[in-house]
Design a binder for these strands. Sequence first.
RNA 1: GUGGGCGUAGCUCAGUUGGUUAGAGCGCUAGGUUGUGGUCCUAGAGGCCGGGGGUUCGAAUCCCCUCGUUCACCCCA
Length: 425
Amino acid sequence: MSSFQTSPGTRDILPPHAGRWRAMVQVFADGVESAGYQNIIPPMFEDLGVFQRLGDATDVVTKEMYDFTDKGGRHIALRPEHTASVCRAFAQHRPTPPWKVWYSGPNFRYERPQAGRYRQFDQVGIEVLGVDDSQLDVEVIALGWDFYKAIGLRNVSLIVNSLGDAGDRGRYIEALGAYFKTHGATLSEQALATLERNPLRVLDSKRPQDAAAIAGAPTIGAFLSTDAAAHFAAVCAGLDSLGIPYEVNERLVRGLDYYQRTTFEFVSGSLDSAQNAVGGGGRYDGLVEDLGGPATPGIGFALGVDRTLLACDAEECFTFGFPVLDVFVIDTTGGSHALSITHQLRHNGFSADRAFEARSMKSQMKSADRSGAQVAVIIGETEAEESTCTVRNLSTSEQTTIPLTELQNHLTTVLGPRQPRRHTP
RNA sequence: GUGGGCGUAGCUCAGUUGGUUAGAGCGCUAGGUUGUGGUCCUAGAGGCCGGGGGUUCGAAUCCCCUCGUUCACCCCA
């Protein structure tokens, strides 16, 4: 047992898992960049105030913020999500709308760790600022949907809802509060406490005790303004036209208070745990203004990388092979030949590795086997004296001895051509 | 923040009503094979039995505290 280990809710992503992780982010990046989104890398911490705009009735703000005072006396918080930072960046730099960006990186929330829930967790996501068109809502949802398809997940369902405009939302919350106050007798203590802070959130309760009261609660649909209802209908029609299956759930409220109009969530049916939402998002038309920018509509989503990988484990998809190495160089004469040959091979575009510490032939062969290399290049006493090398195919065990000067050509024949490595893009 | 489960080798786990020097499999290293991997055989390395305190002649084992971990509530990705 070592003296130090990772802090609660954090972990090391070790190889080979980290390679799979990076591959998943790459699939996401390829998908959204082909739709015109460009990468943004906001800082991992900001002034606490940036995140307080997420709503003071959200737990993310009131009890999960990873905040501290820095040496300059600033009240700083590690970001709990990316959306607020992206909106702050928009308000600060005023890029020309529409601004379509994507991101990937860690977020921090001080919570008790649980299945699929960490204090440092990674998300990938997109945000679009400056466009009010319902067709954009469809595009955004479709890009999330396509990502899950691209990595091979089959058991993901899409849930959509509309929370209406700010006014609709306010009237609905009022009606909801009034309803729960008259039906409060059956509600749990926790739900009653939630009711005080934000009646919407009561709909999220998973306690069986609350189910009856929630089932009878008024739904948002009747409170939508004509505009909001038309917007939502257009979004649903757009999804239909693209053949993306979805389910309208008027109980879907989501946790951040800034959402208006379209909201959606991707739920994995393959995750047994309580945390089965692998992604979610929606419109947040007032957020940029709250952060001191011009009134700007916005929409986006964030997908949990950790949870998505858990879902992939459950569905046995997006597995990965060992990284394949072209050549493993074995040198039983002390290692200097391995040093120069691997150097040369790498410069010519072959991937190559070797063993160190002058191990035995047998030991080096084992390392070659474990490395996944396709061929072993062997330099023993005989080869060293004759300036030759033995090339062994590690899957067929066939081997031939050739002059060292022929090595590049031989490998090109056996493995195919490689591009010499360049140092500039 | 609240509640339940679990902490023994790098990993997965045995360890009887408390009883001598704490085990297995996998992995790792070396040898069997004086230049050749994936199978097989042999050997070796590797443990403050999470930490602290207590009960006892004696604790991995029983009790208390603590830390970690895990699941759930809460909430969320």
